[in-house]
Simulated scan of single mutants.
Amino acid sequence: MNSLIEGYIRTLIDIYQYVIIAYVLLSWLPSARDSFIGEMLGKLCEPYLGVFRRFIPPIGGMIDISPIVALIALRFVGEGIIAVVRFIIP
């Protein structure tokens, strides 16, 4: 039971990480964020990435490293949730 829950949590974290990576890669293509997929990914990613963009300004005015920090934080939060699950469900 415990490993099943851990597997679901890890899978959800992995999927969301891929969604964030796809959204960041779309920023490199002109007008790709205006497409249906770009708008859908924006609705999924912007609320989460916006938290980090408030605190991390772009480097040199152009390079946004907030998605990198967001991915690292997402991994830490996921591992924290798994640790709590392991503690609650022996």
Rank of each mutant, 00 (worst) to 15 (best):
I5P: 03
Y18T: 01
P90V: 02
S35N: 12
Y18S: 06
F55E: 02
Y18K: 06
S27L: 06
I89E: 04
Q17S: 15
I20D: 05
E46S: 09
I21C: 10
A70N: 13
I68A: 13
E6K: 01
I20W: 07
D34Y: 14
M62S: 12
L4C: 00
P67L: 04
P58L: 00
L41M: 05
E46A: 08
S27M: 08
G60M: 08
A73T: 13
P57Y: 08
E46T: 06
V24H: 09
G78A: 04
G78I: 04
L71F: 11
P57K: 10
F55Q: 03
I15R: 06
P58N: 10
F55C: 08
I9H: 07
I37H: 03
G61Y: 13
P58F: 07
G42D: 09
R54Y: 05
V77R: 09
I56K: 05
R33H: 14
M62E: 07
G60Y: 03
L49C: 08
F87D: 10
S27D: 03
Q17A: 14
L71V: 12
F52T: 04
R75V: 12
I9Y: 02
A73G: 04
R86A: 15
G42Y: 05
I81V: 15
V24F: 04
L44P: 00
V85D: 04
C45T: 14
S66K: 11
K43F: 08
S35A: 05
R86I: 14
I56Q: 04
L29R: 06
L71N: 04
P90Q: 10
G78R: 05
S3Q: 10
V85L: 11
S3A: 12
Q17R: 07
I81H: 05
L26Q: 03
M62C: 03
I21F: 12
L41A: 09
V84H: 00
I88T: 11
P58Y: 10
V24A: 10
I37P: 00
L4A: 13
G80W: 06
G50M: 07
A73C: 12
I9V: 15
I72Q: 03
M1D: 13
E6W: 00
L74D: 07
G50H: 06
E79Q: 06
I89A: 09
P58I: 04
P90K: 11
M40Y: 08
R54E: 12
Y18W: 15
P58V: 04
A22P: 00
I88E: 01
L49N: 06
D14L: 12
G42C: 10
I15A: 12
G78K: 12
F87S: 12
P47E: 11
L49W: 08
Y18G: 13
Y48P: 01
G80L: 09
L74M: 13
P47V: 02
I68R: 00
I5L: 14
G42L: 11
R10C: 02
G60E: 10
A32H: 09
L44M: 15
I37T: 12
S35G: 14
V69W: 01
L71Y: 05
S27A: 13
